[in-house]
Nucleic acid binder design. Sequence first.
DNA 1: CTCATAAGTCTACAAGTGTTTGATTGAGGG
DNA 2: CCCTCAATCAAACACTTGTAGACTTATGAG
Lengths: 195, 195
Amino acid sequence: MAATKTAPRRRNAATTRAAILESARRAFVARGYDGAGVREIAEGAGVTAMLVNRYFGSKEKLFAEVVAAAMAAPSILTQENVHAADAGARIAREMVAATAAGATPLDGFLIMLRSASSERAAEIGQVEIGKRHERTLVDAMSGRDAAVRAALVLALTAGLQVMRQMIALPALAKAEPAVLQRMLAPVIQLLLRGP
Amino acid sequence: MAATKTAPRRRNAATTRAAILESARRAFVARGYDGAGVREIAEGAGVTAMLVNRYFGSKEKLFAEVVAAAMAAPSILTQENVHAADAGARIAREMVAATAAGATPLDGFLIMLRSASSERAAEIGQVEIGKRHERTLVDAMSGRDAAVRAALVLALTAGLQVMRQMIALPALAKAEPAVLQRMLAPVIQLLLRGP
DNA sequence: CTCATAAGTCTACAAGTGTTTGATTGAGGG
DNA sequence: CCCTCAATCAAACACTTGTAGACTTATGAG
């Protein structure tokens, strides 16, 4: 409350660090690991490029921290959703919302996609997505081929996000959410429960 | 067989051009537009970097030519497949095959994904994928919400490819093709025909 | 054999990157 | 008040990138 926020910012390590992290998230989401420059990230945080390395060691470590934070967002495949009677409908609704243009809950995944050109960034993303997958399994899925089924739902989410947010394929980007939900609900139900 | 392949290669403009194009495709698939360097592409074709610009004008023009060629590959949603009684099974089989590790038929799409960080490259990819979607619609799909249904199959393919080829999520990358086909067939059938 | 011409290479540059070194500035404890 | 130390910056480094112009070499016609 008493702290100056938008003012020329008092010297404060914690605040500056947070500002850099936030600016980096925006930049990585928009332009990917290679596309986002350290100077650009620094400017977005109101500091110079050098501070980025001072606080995070390197661009790569900064990236890893951003990805880890963004990936910590809650999964769609929660225990509650998966075990509900209308699991398909519930998950479809959340999936459509999370992949809408401008939606941020899946930022972590989007960053990873946009950063796939960089080898190191891709490795970091692989690890984080793998973790997320396993977390989902432990939390919500069980039974025969549970890993594959959970992964297929993840893949469907990924494809939807790619087509809606990255490629902006008109048929999906401009479709009525209700229509998408109606078509996806039985599909997801089928993926989760089998025929 | 009769041609000299690994030999010091005779001077031949057409052959060299083709070699550069092929090397560029491999490089762009693996590392994306920004990640693949002109020198690297040239080396893969057994020439020096300057020849790339000599033959294609610039890296961007080379990229556009590679993408156009790679996108010309046939779609999975052919008229024959979509209208078959076992459409789901047929398409599932082709989808699993086309998204296997090392598979090339969807290279164009993979290039586009890996190149999404570059703005120009992304634009080129959007246009090409939009074309492909419309081509599919005209060729194979019809009926209510045909555009959305076709797009959802495209999205599922994209997600599968992302998870299997890019992220290499173990559950999907190492899964038995038969298992994946069995789980995907009814899902695709449902997407195409509705409940 | 000769030699014009196309095919290919060498050297170089200007612009960009992430990162580092050494100096500057502000804030707070003595 | 002063003095110390952390927070910050400016400049430069080492490197890579795409691209351009001048140079060399093989090829095939005469």
